[in-house]
Design a protein around this nucleic acid. Structure first.
Lengths: 225, 225
DNA sequence: GAAATAATGTGACCAATATCACAATTTTTA
DNA sequence: TAAAAATTGTGATATTGGTCACATTATTTC
């Protein structure tokens, strides 16, 4: 029997705790699907029967709000996409869409539950990740409400550089509208602030290619508005 | 040996899954402390060595933001207060303060971890709660950013009536400043909106005693601004 | 129970940022 | 590669809700 999950080079931290035998069980109950940019991975309101793991790529989690769709967060490769929505409710409470070409592993929820019960290292790791992501969401909430637009945009740029692309140069895969949505600002404001950063020599921008030139300044704007 | 946790009338859903023997272990490694209104239960920045469970009372979770302290959410009795902050990091990432007289059980984290590993029903319940609270925090985030003040205040009033006091009449235990902080509005705006609701016959207010008179209207305002 | 302190109510004014309108540019599609 | 569609840039204007100032009312404290 093949054991692709065991030899996967992009295992989640939790999956690393699994034994070869458990990995085998995982492999047998997990399908990997490719998504193009813009494809819907999880759709709010539909039944959820699988845990989704973003093996490669980049995705956004978004919720239908009363007036428009709100991007709640960006998830980068190596993270679970749908734990809360899969465990918390029978129906998906949010949508997930690929922002870059992505590979997603859909794990049968019964299998996933079995693994949680079988291997406490695995379940501890999952608990840890849930905790971290809750903390992160609290922090995001504070940033969203307390910072001014300049600070918030500086913050996302740093997040892209540090957490997602791990480089001072990167190509944005979301447009300014979506970026505004992510930090709670209008498309126009995003445009204005980005131009301002370019004018002040903090970043260089060619289309959607961005390089951070003055990281110190960006950090400063992020922290002090 | 006494087994107070086993006979506790305010067990958490998770603790209900424990066997008598496991409960005994819990009892031996758990202290219950009373807090007065306004007392600090968990302090952001200090080391966390215990899981906190709100046995009775009401508490608020707040985070120190760049400009002021932000109330992230209200936790009612029967819920864990500090899972994310205890598991996610060695240092508490948020503060918790009693909003009403409260009893909190502090559970030794090593014991808690042991129980997680020992009893998978227990750990599944904890995972479920973490998932739900993450979903809730996404929803809160959307409400905070997309709704107007009237809608947000209508929302909190309904939350108090439905989730916390389970009655159309209740006594607010937070002041308008804190309420504003909870929905991201200034003290003055809260005052204005509440007066407006009273004027329009949607609620009756005597000091901090509130009764919801026109629930339909309140719901309507909550949903449509 | 008087004084001090905290909480609330209310008007006037202000600021940040949304919205609108349209031009310019880039990307996609046929 | 021309046309269509999507994205971005930018000025003018509007609006929500914050801030300030101060009056009024409750609540604590001594």
């Amino acid at each position: 029997m093949d054991n692709k999950c065991n030899f996967c080079t992009m295992k989640s931290k939790a999956a690393e705790k699994l034994t070869a035998k458990e990995s085998e069980k995982l492999s047998a109950n997990c399908v990997t699907v490719k998504f193009k940019k813009g494809d819907s991975i999880i759709k709010q309101g539909t039944y959820s029967t699988n845990v989704a793991y973003l093996r490669t790529g980049l995705a956004k989690i978004h919720i239908q709000g009363p007036y428009y769709t709100q991007v709640v967060r960006i998830v980068s490769q190596g993270n679970y996409l749908g734990l809360p929505t899969t465990f918390g409710d029978k129906v998906n409470q949010y949508s997930v869409t690929a922002v870059e070409p992505s590979e997603v592993c859909f794990i049968d929820i019964t299998t996933f539950r079995k693994l949680l019960n079988l291997n406490s290292d695995f379940s501890n790791q999952i608990i840890l990740e849930l905790c971290k992501s809750e903390l992160e969401s609290y922090q995001k909430c504070v940033n969203r409400t307390q910072r001014h637009i300049r600070g918030k945009i500086a913050g996302v740029l740093l997040e892209f550089a540090d957490e997602i692309y791990r480089s001072e140069k990167f190509t944005l895969s979301i447009n300014q509208e979506e970026m505004g949505n992510l930090v709670d600002a209008s498309r126009e404001s995003v445009s204005r602030v980005l131009s301002e950063f370019v004018r002040d020599g903090i970043i260089v921008m060619e289309g959607r290619n961005i390089s951070i030139v003055n990281r110190q300044m960006l950090l400063n704007i992020c922290l002090n508005g």
